[in-house]
Design a binder for these strands. Sequence first.
DNA 1: TAAAGATGTCATATATATCTGACATATTAA
DNA 2: TTAATATGTCAGATATATATGACATCTTTA
Lengths: 62, 62
Amino acid sequence: MNRVKDYRKQAGLTQFELAQKVAVARQTINLVENDKYNPSLDLCLRLARALHTDLNHLFWEA
Amino acid sequence: MNRVKDYRKQAGLTQFELAQKVAVARQTINLVENDKYNPSLDLCLRLARALHTDLNHLFWEA
DNA sequence: TAAAGATGTCATATATATCTGACATATTAA
DNA sequence: TTAATATGTCAGATATATATGACATCTTTA
Protein backbone atom coordinates (compact mmCIF):
# COMPACT_ATOMS: atom_id res chain seq x y z
CA MET A 1 0.00 0.00 0.00
CA ASN A 2 2.48 2.64 -1.11
CA ARG A 3 1.53 6.19 -2.11
CA VAL A 4 3.18 6.38 -5.52
CA LYS A 5 -0.11 6.66 -7.40
CA ASP A 6 -1.36 9.46 -5.13
CA TYR A 7 1.80 11.49 -5.51
CA ARG A 8 1.93 10.86 -9.26
CA LYS A 9 -1.63 12.09 -9.77
CA GLN A 10 -1.02 15.06 -7.54
CA ALA A 11 1.93 15.88 -9.81
CA GLY A 12 -0.29 15.58 -12.87
CA LEU A 13 1.79 12.80 -14.44
CA THR A 14 0.76 9.67 -16.31
CA GLN A 15 2.41 6.32 -15.57
CA PHE A 16 4.29 6.72 -18.84
CA GLU A 17 5.58 10.19 -17.98
CA LEU A 18 6.71 9.12 -14.52
CA ALA A 19 8.37 6.07 -16.05
CA GLN A 20 10.35 8.34 -18.38
CA LYS A 21 11.40 10.61 -15.52
CA VAL A 22 12.82 7.73 -13.53
CA ALA A 23 14.05 5.76 -16.55
CA VAL A 24 12.06 2.55 -16.22
CA ALA A 25 9.35 0.92 -18.31
CA ARG A 26 5.75 2.02 -17.85
CA GLN A 27 4.88 -1.49 -16.73
CA THR A 28 7.31 -1.16 -13.85
CA ILE A 29 5.47 1.90 -12.55
CA ASN A 30 2.18 0.09 -12.89
CA LEU A 31 3.47 -2.91 -10.94
CA VAL A 32 4.94 -0.75 -8.19
CA GLU A 33 1.71 1.25 -7.81
CA ASN A 34 -0.31 -1.93 -7.51
CA ASP A 35 2.09 -3.59 -5.06
CA LYS A 36 2.83 -6.36 -7.52
CA TYR A 37 6.43 -6.32 -6.53
CA ASN A 38 9.24 -5.01 -4.62
CA PRO A 39 11.20 -2.14 -6.22
CA SER A 40 14.90 -1.62 -5.63
CA LEU A 41 16.06 1.10 -3.25
CA ASP A 42 17.57 2.92 -6.17
CA LEU A 43 14.23 3.07 -7.96
CA CYS A 44 12.51 4.16 -4.75
CA LEU A 45 14.98 7.03 -4.44
CA ARG A 46 14.43 8.09 -8.05
CA LEU A 47 10.64 7.96 -7.56
CA ALA A 48 10.83 10.04 -4.40
CA ARG A 49 12.95 12.70 -6.11
CA ALA A 50 10.81 12.74 -9.26
CA LEU A 51 7.70 13.24 -7.13
CA HIS A 52 9.32 15.89 -4.94
CA THR A 53 8.94 13.90 -1.77
CA ASP A 54 11.01 11.38 0.20
CA LEU A 55 11.17 7.69 1.04
CA ASN A 56 9.04 7.85 4.14
CA HIS A 57 6.20 9.72 2.45
CA LEU A 58 6.11 7.22 -0.42
CA PHE A 59 6.79 3.93 1.31
CA TRP A 60 6.83 4.09 5.10
CA GLU A 61 3.96 3.23 7.35
CA ALA A 62 4.45 3.75 11.02
CA MET B 1 26.51 6.09 1.66
CA ASN B 2 23.68 4.67 3.75
CA ARG B 3 23.65 4.61 7.55
CA VAL B 4 22.99 0.91 8.17
CA LYS B 5 26.38 0.27 9.75
CA ASP B 6 26.01 3.25 12.10
CA TYR B 7 22.57 2.19 13.28
CA ARG B 8 23.64 -1.45 13.58
CA LYS B 9 26.60 -0.57 15.78
CA GLN B 10 24.51 1.78 17.84
CA ALA B 11 22.16 -1.17 18.41
CA GLY B 12 25.09 -3.34 19.48
CA LEU B 13 24.49 -5.92 16.75
CA THR B 14 26.94 -7.83 14.58
CA GLN B 15 26.33 -8.21 10.84
CA PHE B 16 25.35 -11.80 11.54
CA GLU B 17 22.82 -10.88 14.22
CA LEU B 18 21.24 -8.20 12.05
CA ALA B 19 21.13 -10.65 9.17
CA GLN B 20 19.20 -13.10 11.34
CA LYS B 21 16.77 -10.41 12.48
CA VAL B 22 15.88 -9.48 8.91
CA ALA B 23 16.21 -13.01 7.52
CA VAL B 24 18.97 -12.57 4.97
CA ALA B 25 22.51 -13.89 4.69
CA ARG B 26 25.31 -12.11 6.53
CA GLN B 27 26.94 -11.34 3.20
CA THR B 28 23.85 -9.42 2.15
CA ILE B 29 24.19 -7.10 5.16
CA ASN B 30 27.87 -6.64 4.40
CA LEU B 31 27.16 -5.72 0.79
CA VAL B 32 24.40 -3.30 1.73
CA GLU B 33 26.56 -1.57 4.34
CA ASN B 34 29.37 -1.15 1.83
CA ASP B 35 27.09 0.08 -0.96
CA LYS B 36 27.97 -2.87 -3.13
CA TYR B 37 24.40 -3.12 -4.28
CA ASN B 38 20.93 -2.02 -4.26
CA PRO B 39 18.65 -3.70 -1.70
CA SER B 40 14.97 -4.28 -2.32
CA LEU B 41 12.40 -2.00 -0.70
CA ASP B 42 11.20 -4.93 1.36
CA LEU B 43 14.66 -5.49 2.80
CA CYS B 44 15.02 -1.75 3.48
CA LEU B 45 11.77 -1.81 5.42
CA ARG B 46 12.86 -4.82 7.47
CA LEU B 47 16.22 -3.16 8.21
CA ALA B 48 14.54 0.05 9.31
CA ARG B 49 12.21 -1.80 11.66
CA ALA B 50 14.97 -4.04 13.04
CA LEU B 51 17.07 -0.96 13.79
CA HIS B 52 14.16 0.97 15.30
CA THR B 53 14.32 3.74 12.74
CA ASP B 54 12.74 4.51 9.35
CA LEU B 55 13.58 4.64 5.65
CA ASN B 56 14.65 8.26 5.58
CA HIS B 57 17.06 7.91 8.49
CA LEU B 58 18.71 4.87 6.92
CA PHE B 59 18.71 5.73 3.23
CA TRP B 60 17.64 9.27 2.43
CA GLU B 61 19.94 12.17 1.79
CA ALA B 62 18.37 15.52 1.24
C1' DT C 1 50.50 -15.93 22.57
C1' DA C 2 46.47 -18.91 20.64
C1' DA C 3 41.70 -19.30 19.77
C1' DA C 4 37.38 -17.39 18.77
C1' DG C 5 34.63 -13.98 16.68
C1' DA C 6 33.81 -10.26 13.21
C1' DT C 7 34.34 -8.54 8.76
C1' DG C 8 35.52 -8.37 3.77
C1' DT C 9 35.46 -10.86 -0.36
C1' DC C 10 35.28 -14.57 -3.97
C1' DA C 11 32.74 -17.95 -7.07
C1' DT C 12 28.69 -20.35 -8.23
C1' DA C 13 23.67 -20.91 -8.11
C1' DT C 14 18.82 -19.37 -7.79
C1' DA C 15 14.99 -16.15 -7.35
C1' DT C 16 13.10 -12.14 -8.87
C1' DA C 17 13.20 -7.17 -10.56
C1' DT C 18 12.91 -5.10 -14.76
C1' DC C 19 12.57 -4.90 -20.04
C1' DT C 20 10.26 -5.49 -24.47
C1' DG C 21 6.34 -6.22 -27.11
C1' DA C 22 1.67 -6.95 -27.26
C1' DC C 23 -3.27 -6.79 -26.35
C1' DA C 24 -7.72 -5.62 -23.80
C1' DT C 25 -10.35 -2.43 -21.45
C1' DA C 26 -11.44 1.95 -19.72
C1' DT C 27 -11.41 6.83 -19.97
C1' DT C 28 -11.15 11.28 -22.38
C1' DA C 29 -11.34 14.22 -26.44
C1' DA C 30 -12.80 15.14 -31.38
C1' DT D 1 -19.87 7.59 -31.63
C1' DT D 2 -15.21 7.30 -33.09
C1' DA D 3 -10.35 8.14 -32.16
C1' DA D 4 -6.82 8.79 -29.02
C1' DT D 5 -4.90 8.19 -24.52
C1' DA D 6 -4.29 5.80 -20.03
C1' DT D 7 -4.22 1.75 -17.49
C1' DG D 8 -3.99 -3.28 -16.37
C1' DT D 9 -2.00 -7.48 -17.63
C1' DC D 10 0.40 -11.42 -20.07
C1' DA D 11 4.53 -14.02 -21.93
C1' DG D 12 9.28 -14.43 -22.73
C1' DA D 13 14.02 -12.55 -22.08
C1' DT D 14 17.82 -10.40 -19.35
C1' DA D 15 20.02 -8.25 -15.38
C1' DT D 16 20.80 -8.38 -10.74
C1' DA D 17 19.53 -9.20 -5.69
C1' DT D 18 20.29 -12.68 -2.61
C1' DA D 19 21.90 -17.49 -0.98
C1' DT D 20 25.49 -20.82 0.08
C1' DG D 21 30.01 -22.17 1.06
C1' DA D 22 34.54 -20.96 1.61
C1' DC D 23 38.73 -18.44 2.84
C1' DA D 24 41.71 -14.44 4.47
C1' DT D 25 42.40 -10.83 7.61
C1' DC D 26 41.55 -8.30 11.62
C1' DT D 27 40.08 -7.77 16.37
C1' DT D 28 38.94 -9.42 20.84
C1' DT D 29 39.23 -12.56 24.58
C1' DA D 30 41.05 -16.77 27.15
